[in-house]
Design a protein around this nucleic acid. Sequence first.
DNA 1: TAAATACGTAACCGAAAAGTTACGTATTTT
DNA 2: AAAATACGTAACTTTTCGGTTACGTATTTA
Lengths: 112, 112
Amino acid sequence: MRRDVFQAIADPRRRAILSLLALQTLTLNGVAVHFKISRPAISKHVKILTECGLIKIEQKGRERFCTAQLQKLDEVSDWVEQYRRFWETKLDSLEEYLAELQKKEKKNDRKK
Amino acid sequence: MRRDVFQAIADPRRRAILSLLALQTLTLNGVAVHFKISRPAISKHVKILTECGLIKIEQKGRERFCTAQLQKLDEVSDWVEQYRRFWETKLDSLEEYLAELQKKEKKNDRKK
DNA sequence: TAAATACGTAACCGAAAAGTTACGTATTTT
DNA sequence: AAAATACGTAACTTTTCGGTTACGTATTTA
């Protein structure tokens, strides 16, 4: 039962669930109606996402509200970003270099 | 046989292989000596990484040199970055916002 | 209070993942 | 030419994954 963020986002359905919950908190059934698989299957996916901290659950009566905790994705971001210099420094065209530069600036703008 | 980047980096051993190859090109055996699992096992991991574009292989005689193709990680980066605003500029809930505010006020109270 | 609802979970299943050993083959070394 | 090396791959095993159905339970609605 390896439950890290990398393994959690490996499944396309779990990524889809996250993209739903990024926009709004939903009950478990609220999530389930967007998929053709059964509710227990969704329940399992949500459990996995919860166990690795990508989702937070709040119980209200018989309902369970799922909220995305996307700051957990920082772990993935950090891992990827440590390699960025390895692929950004070797570019095969000036165009790509400039495009990459602009992208970087936008990213920095967002960060601060 | 789902071979996308997300699934490829889900395995911790494959991430370790990538971090080795980020620094230097290695033959398959050159990779294998860093792990306690068997060479065929490494061979399989390398195959998976190659199939999803994270590694490039160059055969020279009986040796196969593996080079990381880290620009493929852009797919992961892009996916994560689309959610950054959700955790950096937006708060998860009004409750958390207010709690954060109170915390800050208490801190100020203590200072004066 | 009875029925409907919103779940969790257990039991089960097939497929895929991750490992092993055994063996084949091309290339290099001696 | 023979031995050693650097692999790939097939066959097999064990776990894990992702799904299902069936059922139990607490809460809400009628």
